[in-house]
Simulated assay, not measured.
Amino acid sequence: MKKTIDFMMDKKKAGQKITMLTCYDYPTAVIQENAGIDIIFVGDSVGTNMLGYKSATEVTLEDMLHHLKAVRRGVEKALLVADMPYRSYETKEIALKNAQLFIEAGADAVKLEGREEKVVEYLTKNNIDVIGHIGFTPQTHEKVSMQGKTFEQGKELYESALSLQTSGLKLLVLEMVPEEVAGLISEYLMIPTIGIAAGRYCDGQVQVINDLLGMTQRKLVHVKEYADYKNSTFEAVQKYKDEVENRIFPHENNVRNMDADELHEFKALF
């Protein structure tokens, strides 16, 4: 069964948590699909995690489309969401043109940051499902910091969430928000919320796959490493290097041989 926005709504109503992970390539998409992840998300975090960019603002539309197409090939049932990169939705007309490219490339919905009610409403009227993102927003905040720590900031987040929902938003990502604020917003909204560094009470959770697998150097409070990719991969590469240099690899089990008669004829050339 294909997972849809309605499927996510049903999970919220039933009190079931929604799972979401970033994904940037085909092999990882296949793994996430087979594991049953609800939402596979091609985030603009591809820039800092896979492309060596210093900021999400460096990610281009072409970058996103390239990685979206790769992930699409590995996804069948999960809801596939793609980030609209920096400055790709400055007006509602530009947003629609670019969002249509994402849909054509295989996205089921697009995600954008901030209070973009007019854009959300316009895309929704043109049959494009939109995921929102408030709190810490990498495309606009230069410094990583918690949002909504004071009454006024929390109220602003709450009002933003309500306004975006009214505009037609289908899901809302809350990033780096105190869990009390995220929890109350999640409880009041009709649409599902997905938290990252937003505590335990959102309707679902999203993590950057590189953080989850232990691929990065950073240690973050909201991240749990479920694997040690960095060290295990280093050890594998180092072992490969040593075995090649010491003539251990390739082993006789790793080679293919020519037919004896063909080999005899071939040797006659030398």
Rank of each mutant, 00 (worst) to 15 (best):
T150G: 00
T60D: 10
L112S: 04
G106R: 07
A99H: 00
L123Y: 11
G148R: 10
A56R: 12
T91G: 08
T166G: 15
G36H: 07
S145V: 12
A95R: 08
K125Y: 05
L101D: 11
I131A: 10
G135P: 01
S145T: 13
K54P: 04
V110Q: 00
R72F: 05
K155Y: 14
V75S: 07
A105C: 00
K143P: 12
Q100C: 03
E62F: 09
L65G: 12
K69G: 05
T124A: 14
L61D: 09
T60R: 12
G154P: 08
K143W: 01
N49T: 11
V120N: 06
V46Y: 03
Q153M: 13
A161D: 06
K143H: 15
V119N: 02
N126K: 09
A78T: 02
E142M: 13
R73S: 04
G43R: 09
V120E: 09
M50W: 12
L157S: 08
I37P: 07
I134P: 06
T140Q: 09
G132V: 09
T140R: 11
L169P: 12
Q147K: 14
V144P: 04
N126C: 07
V81F: 11
G47A: 10
G154M: 06
D63Q: 00
N49F: 07
A109W: 10
P138A: 00
S160W: 08
L162W: 10
H141Y: 15
Q139W: 02
